[in-house]
Design a protein around this nucleic acid. Structure first.
Length: 398
DNA sequence: AGGTATTCACATGAAACTATTCTCTGAGTTAGG
DNA sequence: TAACTCAGAGAATAGTTTCATGTGAATACCTGT
């Protein structure tokens, strides 16, 4: 008790490295977006007609994660709304992230989500889908206005729900009398547009803008900008920003990642009670971020997934690369041991594929000729111990 | 030796089934006037 | 008679199971030299 109190007291007294940590968080919106002037201008030009109550073209934006797509769009739409507020032009920007709200991965839920952002309460299930469409229509069509619908990570939505959603959305304008909708799609996947119906494609991407990745220098610039606000003077050693930028540039110029890296490195240094962040903290930070990510994913997996993962790790530890069948055998024994009903091999095969997608294990299909065709499963294990602990916890093993 | 055909051990697909959540509807029930 | 309750029908989703079909290449099996 007393020691905890002491700890808190010294904690409070301890010098912090940060001035304002929130500057490094992904929710932070800077006033200016460096190295995105060109894109900002393009988007502004495309959306400008909305000011005169004309419908802007539909827009499609590509770019890898952390290239500032969302930032630019949010920035511009909020400015647009700011300007229109005193005038009689009514403009609304509806922003939906199709991935973050992982509930919105079917057509029904997606539309329901839109209704909810409009302030309507829609039951999560129980209504026919077109009923929800009607609710949405009625809600937006009661005033003369322009709506800019922003669909972030749209590829996610289409992958799960199919492209009919888009078709219906695009057709919506025909059924509206007072209100007009313009759609902005944002996607990480550059090839995504090739997979959807050409008719939808042409009307959805009347305009296209590509956000190229930042290069190392640009990331350095961004980092320095933010670091100046986030950290106290002189708390970053030489080379820290450079190294952060280099790491992030290696990963297709992801600025968000660079910022995370810097923030976590700062936290680590601070926890050690050091007066400044040094290069080695970047490495530690990268390790920590990866480990946290894995542990987080694993704990949130359903029990069956955990069981399959546990089996994979164990069998792999025993004899290196293994096949689906071997994992399945172990898995069946595990199930009877802990008393859960085993899934079919068909399902386990899918589960393994999904675990592979999550990056927890590696599975690739190989043919061993006469000896069949199977997945070759391996576990790249730098952080296995921690994951195993989590798994045993989740499965109720000693 | 060179060329086909087999064959293994799953992969991959599609459809159908189960369980669950949630709304809506209308019949039956209740309580108050 | 109005208000309330409650079961059942329907809509929708997640997670499987069942059934069916596909598949890459190491081997087995030919064939003709």
């Amino acid at each position: 008790m007393g020691t905890t109190k002491n700890f808190f007291e010294t904690y409070l007294k301890k010098e912090t490295l940060f001035l304002d940590k929130s500057v490094l968080q992904s929710s932070y919106t800077p006033d200016t977006i460096p190295h995105r002037e060109e894109q900002t201008k393009q988007v502004a030009e495309i959306l400008a007609p909305a000011l005169k109550m004309e419908l802007p073209s539909n827009l499609f934006i590509y770019g890898k994660t952390g290239t500032g797509k969302t930032l630019v769009i949010k920035h511009i739409t909020s400015q647009l709304i700011e300007i229109t507020r005193p005038q009689q032009v009514v403009l609304q920007a509806l922003y939906t992230n199709c991935k973050l709200k992982r509930v919105a991965d079917t057509e029904y839920r997606f539309i329901a989500e839109l209704c909810r952002t409009m302030g309507k309460t829609v039951p999560p299930t129980g209504l026919p889908t077109d009923e929800v469409y009607k609710i949405f229509l009625r809600t937006i069509d009661d005033t003369k206005q322009i709506i800019i619908l922003i669909l972030d990570e749209i590829d996610h939505l289409i992958n799960k729900a199919g492209d009919e959603v888009l078709y219906n959305l695009l057709r919506l304008n025909a059924e509206l009398s007072k209100c007009r909708i313009s759609i902005i799609g944002i996607s990480n996947d550059v090839q995504f547009i090739d997979y959807i119906d050409p008719r939808i494609r042409s009307s959805l991407s009347e305009e296209e803008i590509v956000f190229p990745p930042y290069n190392a220098l640009q990331i350095q610039h961004i980092l320095r900008d933010r670091a100046e606000k986030a950290f106290k003077k002189g708390s970053l050693n030489d080379g820290v920003v450079e190294k952060c930028a280099a790491y992030a540039a290696r990963e297709h110029g992801d600025a968000r990642r660079a910022l995370d890296l810097l923030r976590v490195a700062g936290e680590l240094a601070e926890r050690e009670g050091l007066p400044n962040v040094s290069v080695k903290h970047i490495d530690l930070a990268e390790d920590k971020i990866e480990r946290d990510r894995l542990v987080d994913i694993v704990t949130t997996q359903p029990q069956q997934f955990q069981a399959v993962l546990y089996s994979s790790i164990n069998v792999c530890a025993e004899r290196g690369d293994v096949s689906t069948g071997e994992v399945y055998d172990f898995y069946k024994k595990l199930c009877s041991h802990i008393g859960i009903r085993p899934l079919t091999q068909r399902r386990v095969s899918d589960v393994i594929a999904e675990l592979d997608m999550l990056g927890i294990i590696n599975a690739r299909v190989i043919s061993k000729g006469r000896y069949g065709r199977t997945k070759e499963i391996s576990v790249s294990g730098t952080n296995q111990e921690k994951i195993l602990v989590v798994l045993k916890e989740g499965l109720g093993l000693k």
